[in-house]
């Protein structure tokens, strides 16, 4: 499942996508993120028949991603690899901006 967390508003699209099929629920993203954007859920909130743990983007962060992620995304051309993307072995995390 591609879970897109975030929003689009007048200024652009701000979505973090977690591909749950590529995720092994290691929890590294939760540890790596300086803004504490992720959390491990006990089970997939969007699939009640699947009782496996899964990382989600915290509801109270999801509508502020542009600002929450700002420290990892300095403006300019050579953006460093994002911590959340770097630690994820399955490459399950992508950002839309």
């Amino acid at each position: 499942m591609l879970a897109n967390y975030g929003y689009s508003d007048g200024s652009g699209n701000y979505f973090i996508t977690i591909d749950t099929d590529k995720c092994n629920a290691c929890g590294e993203c939760v540890e790596a993120c300086p803004a504490n954007i992720f959390e491990m859920a006990d089970e997939d909130p969007n699939d009640p028949m699947n009782a496996e743990p899964l990382p989600i983007v915290l509801p109270e962060k999801k509508n502020k991603l542009k600002y929450e992620c700002a420290t990892c995304k300095p403006s300019g051309d050579n953006r460093p690899t994002l911590p959340c993307v770097m630690v994820c072995e399955g490459c399950a995390i992508t950002h839309s901006w």
Binding site: M1, N4, Y7, D9
Partner: peptide, 14 residues
């Protein structure tokens, strides 16, 4: 009817 891809925009009433 199992979800494969989703997004929800609830930032504003627009």
């Amino acid at each position: 009817g199992k979800v494969t891809n989703f997004l929800m925009n609830d930032k504003c009433a627009a």
